[in-house]
């Protein structure tokens, strides 16, 4: 009995320590964002002696965070809507009509999960299509990057929807487009949320594509703005922390609201009951 209690205590302590270690960086960012420049110079774990809320006002102004926030929302939401909808349309027909050719196309698309991006020749493609340094260009690019994994997730889900629905709708005189948007699309909601949230967070967090393909600072998303802000204010960790906190706050909020969908999506893709 005692051994069992000690073991239970030990297990809880290990889990607690592990969780603490996972949480340290977020904690550091929060406490240091409120310190003065001198106090935050070593990015220490101590609590701030005075609460310097003005740090946030300073970074929003100097880091041009409002524009960056608008850009991030535009890219993440725009690309998620386009990418997830196109992926759903593709996954639906490929899953319903499994002809030899369609199966090949399905595998061809999900090959993109493994395929690395060739940034150099992609630059050439972006120039040829006049999409370089444009916001629509980066949105289309992000939509494209989200497609292979979304098709993979949604394809498996479409397979679980009964075909009788389609047949009934067709007999009732539904056109293929109407069948998809008024019958299938609503039923896909759970998997669309999972794919959508994963894409949204992935795009929000990404900074490599804008680094290569957007050279106008007015088009930069939050991540790239933070990166450049860090370059300018490397010595001032209070401001950098405030900037970081404002960047990750939306991510953490979305994560906390949608964690069930995220955690289930991760497993739907990799574990089959």
């Amino acid at each position: 009995m005692i051994i069992r209690k000690i073991r239970g205590l030990f297990n809880h302590s290990v889990a607690l320590v592990a969780s603490l270690i996972m949480f340290i960086p977020v904690y550091l960012v929060v406490v240091n964002s409120l310190k003065t420049k001198v106090e935050a110079s070593s990015m220490g774990a101590g609590l701030p002696t005075t609460l310097n809320w003005q740090n946030f006002a300073v970074v929003i102004e100097r880091g041009k965070l409002l524009t960056a926030f608008g850009n991030s929302v535009l890219y993440a939401v725009g690309a998620t809507l386009i990418g997830t909808t196109l992926a759903a349309l593709a996954a639906y027909v490929l899953s319903r009509n499994r002809s030899r050719f369609n199966r090949f196309i399905y595998f061809f698309i999900i090959m993109g999960i493994a395929m690395p991006t060739n940034f150099v020749t992609l630059m050439k493609v972006m120039q040829l299509t006049h999409l370089i340094n444009t916001q629509i260009g980066i949105i289309l690019l992000y939509s494209a990057t989200s497609i292979p994994f979304s098709v993979f997730l949604i394809y498996a889900f479409v397979g679980t929807l009964p075909r009788e629905l389609d047949e009934a709708a067709i007999i009732d005189g539904c056109s293929p487009i109407r069948l998809f948007f008024s019958v299938i699309y609503p039923l896909l909601t759970p998997v669309l949320i999972t794919a959508g949230v994963l894409n949204l967070l992935g795009i929000w967090n990404e900074f490599l594509l804008p680094l290569y393909y957007l050279n106008r600072s007015a088009y930069w998303p939050m991540t790239l703005a933070v990166y450049n802000f860090f370059g300018q204010f490397e010595s001032d960790w209070s401001l950098v922390s405030a900037d970081i906190l404002l960047t990750i706050l939306p991510v953490i909020i979305v994560y906390l609201f949608a964690q069930r969908f995220i955690l289930s999506g991760m497993t739907a893709g990799s574990v089959k009951g």
């Binding site: 996972m22 960086p25 977020v26 991540t223 960047t247 994560y255 995220i262």
Partner: peptide
């Protein structure tokens, strides 16, 4: 799971 949703940059 939190570290996995934070930007790698951050």
């Amino acid at each position: 799971y939190l570290p996995a949703v934070l930007p790698i940059l951050v």
